[in-house]
Each structure stands twice: as C-alpha cells, then as structure tokens.
Amino acid sequence: MRITVLGSAAGGGFPQWNCNCRNCAGVRSGTVRARPRTQSSIFVLPDEGADGVLFNASPDILEQIRSRPALQPARALRDSAIAGVVLMDGQVDHATGLFMLRERKGALPLWCTDPVEEDLTEGNPILRVLGHYCGVDRHRIPLDGSAFAIPGVADLEFRALPLSSKAAPYSPHREQPVDGDNIGMLMLDRASGRRVFYAPGLGQITPAVFDAMAGADCVLVDGTFWTDDEMPRMGLSAKTARDIGHLPQSGPGGMLEWLAKLPAGTRRMLIHINNTNPILDEDSAERAQLQHAGVEVCEDGMQIHL
C-alpha cells in the first residue's frame, strides 16, 4: 500500500489567509522554521496499481493534483488516477473540493455515510450542484464494520468506524450527533496484510477505535490542537478543542497518552494540524516532545509505503 499525504493542515491551511498568530506570521517572514501546508487529504494506492482512492476533497485539491504527478497519469486526453473519493465527514475543508472535480467525464464515484450525504444534500447542497455537471455515483459506507471495496483499486479493503466528533455547522444534526457524522477508516492491503487506520477528526478514543489503532501498522490521526484551550487562550474562539470535536495531543487523556499505549512497532503520525498548533514550529519544545515519543508530524507530499 502506498499513501501520499496531499494535505496535512486543518481547515484554512497553513499559513491561514487571515491569521497573524506566531506560527502564521513566522512562516511568512521566515522567523519560524515551519513548512506551509494545504488542507488535509490523502491518496491511497495498492502497490501494483496506478489508480487509487482520494480521501477527502479539500478546497486545495487542484494545487494538490498539480503538485503530485501520480494523480494525473496522462493515459488519455482526459484522465485521472482517482478511482473514487471517500469522505470522512461533510466539513467544508473535506468536501468542497468536489466542486473542482466537476469536469469528470462520467459521474464521480463517491463513498460517504448516510448522514454525510444528508449534510451535502440539505445543509450544503454540493451533491445537488454536481448534478448539473458530472453527477455523482454515490455509494453508502456501512457503519457495522463490514468490509467494502472500491472498483479499480484491487487488493485494498476498507472498514469504517463511527467516531465521536462534530458534524459540520450546517448539518441538520450539528447539535444532535448521529453515527456516521464522522468516521475513521481501517484500510487493509490484502496482498501484504498491512493495515492503516486513518482518522483526521477524532474527539474521543473509544474501545473500538483503540482496537483498530492497536491492530494497525500505521495510524494517521487527529493532530489539530496541542492543548484543549488553545483557541480560547489565544482569543480566537470561546470553544475548546473537545467542544469542536478534536482530541488535543497534550494533557491527561490526550492523543499522546493514547499513542503511547500502542504496540512498539506501530508507526504513529499526526495529520489535520491547525495553524495555531506549536508542533508546526520544527524548533519548538512541543515538536521535540513528539520526536522523543516517536510521533511524526505529517507534511504535504510525504510518502508512506507499507
């Protein structure tokens, strides 16, 4: 299995267009050693395949495709290596890039849960708008743990797990969460037996989620905030990380505490990193703490081969 990190930032990217926090101002001026990032998305291919699966379609998808030639194999006048798109939720930073794929020759193969389909039909009607262009061939993601496959991507098997997080602000069930608002994905390469667990939005680690993480060779999980009070402390929001559905890395019960419980051979990676998170500064004490714990920070263009 080959995974390309197309984007590793949270919504707004890094630096965020209107933000002058220490990280954003520093990366612009060169006073902070950090790398710009686009909004989070990954592309997954089987070892022997040319076509793969796009997980989340960020608003930066055109830039991400231009930067990664493997997504445009140029086998025909109109071509793409994207065999299908899987949405982990219905958030703006994970779904509005679908608009940029509207020139597709046929209907766009899309996998999402029923609640996400509702979000993108009623709350933010992206799927209805696409009906005026290429159209959407929507497939339901099961939430009972049963496996599903994506045509054109041989040897890869997918299983979804409902997550505790938050639906988009325009979701009909924003304040009344339902299973399927957010999911994690366990991916199996049947040829090698290797497994990856992917969860860019994760508010709580339940026993089922931890079992999936512990059974994976690599985990790519929510790296949005370092502390629970990161946004209120900076005066940017009244809501904590947990309020908006993200488990902070530090503190009791934080992501680092959970990652430390995984088997020694598990590759641990953080993705969907907010522009305010001090781990973006490669010289920060927080980044040094991650390195000591054996936890990696995803970067745009990173290649993971399992």
Rank of each mutant, 00 (worst) to 15 (best):
T4P: 05
T4M: 00
A9N: 00
N18C: 11
V44D: 05
G49Y: 03
D51R: 11
V53C: 05
A57K: 08
L62R: 10
E63K: 11
S67H: 04
R68V: 07
A70F: 14
A83S: 08
A83Q: 00
G84Q: 02
M88G: 12
D93C: 12
F99Y: 15
I126E: 04
L127G: 01
R128N: 14
V129D: 13
G135C: 14
G135S: 11
D137M: 08
D137T: 00
H139W: 07
I141V: 11
G145T: 08
G145R: 04
F158Q: 01
S164Y: 09
A167N: 12
A167V: 06
A168G: 09
S171Q: 03
E175F: 15
I183N: 04
I183C: 07
F197H: 02
A199V: 03
P207A: 08
V209M: 03
G215D: 13
A216E: 08
V221K: 08
V221D: 01
D222N: 11
D228P: 07
D229T: 10
L236K: 12
T240K: 07
G245E: 00
H246D: 03
G251K: 13
M255P: 10
E257D: 15
L259T: 11
G265H: 09
T266A: 08
N275T: 09
N275C: 12
N277Y: 14
S284K: 07
S284E: 12
A285D: 15
G294M: 10
M302F: 03
